[in-house]
C-alpha cells in the first residue's frame, strides 16, 4: 500500500513536470509586444518591453556597426556577447519613430551572437540589451546617418 508521503511526492513531481511543460512554450511563444513596438519614445519602449527591470552597462556586449552610414535603410548590425546564459538580445534605436527594432529569444544551444540589417532614420544611439542569467545588461554606440531609412 502506498503511504501518504509517497503519494504527496508523486503529486508534487507530477506538478513540477506539468509546470515546466507549461512554462517553456510560454517563453518561446511569448506574444509580440504590441505596446512596446508601437511606443514612439525610447524610454517608453524600453520600460514597456522590460517593465520594472534595472539595466547595467556591460563591456561584454559588442555592437558591430559602421559609425557613419550613407543610406539608413540598410544598416548591417551584429551583436556579440560573452555574457553567460543569454536568454535574449534586443536592439533599440533611440531616435527612430518607433525605437524598439527587434528582439531575439535565444535558447541554451545558441551562441551569444545575432546579425541582421535595420533601418535608422537619424543620427542616433543604438542600444543592445542582453538578458543574461535573468538580469539585463546593455551597451550603446552612436552612429551618423546621412539619409534616413524609415520612409
Amino acid at each position: 500500500m502506498m503511504r501518504r508521503r509517497d503519494t504527496l511526492k508523486l503529486i508534487s513531481s507530477g506538478a513540477t513536470l506539468i509546470f515546466t511543460g507549461l512554462l517553456f512554450p510560454v517563453r518561446v511563444l511569448a506574444k509580440w509586444n504590441e505596446a512596446a513596438f508601437a511606443a514612439t519614445d525610447y524610454q517608453e519602449a524600453l520600460t514597456t518591453y522590460f517593465p520594472n527591470q534595472q539595466m547595467t552597462e556591460s563591456d561584454q556586449i559588442t555592437i558591430g556597426v559602421r559609425q557613419e552610414i550613407e543610406n539608413g535603410s540598410v544598416v548591417p548590425i551584429k551583436i556579440v556577447t560573452e555574457l553567460p546564459d543569454v536568454e535574449s538580445i534586443a536592439i533599440f534605436v533611440e531616435k527612430n519613430p518607433t525605437p524598439l527594432i527587434a528582439n531575439f529569444d535565444l535558447t541554451p544551444a545558441c551562441k551569444g551572437f545575432v546579425s541582421t540589417r535595420i533601418k535608422v532614420e537619424l543620427p542616433s544611439d543604438i542600444i543592445a540589451v542582453v538578458k543574461s542569467d535573468g538580469k539585463l545588461f546593455y551597451t550603446k554606440t552612436y552612429i551618423i546617418v546621412h539619409e534616413g531609412g524609415c520612409a
Binding site: V28, L29, A30, W32, N33, F37, S73, V74, V75, P76, K78, V93, N96, T98, L100, I101, A102, N103, F104, D105, L106, T107, A109, C110, K111, F113, V114, S115, T116, R117, I118, K119, V120, G149, C150
Partner: peptide, 28 residues
C-alpha cells in the same frame, strides 16, 4: 527550429530592413 525544437525566436518591428537578413549560431 533544429530537428523540430525551437532554437531561435525573433520579434521584429517595421525597422528591420526590406528583404530581412538574419544570422545566428548554435551548438549541437
Amino acid at each position: 527550429k533544429h530537428n523540430d525544437v525551437v532554437v531561435l525566436h525573433c520579434d521584429w518591428s517595421r525597422a528591420v530592413s526590406k528583404n530581412p537578413y538574419l544570422s545566428f549560431m548554435f551548438e549541437g
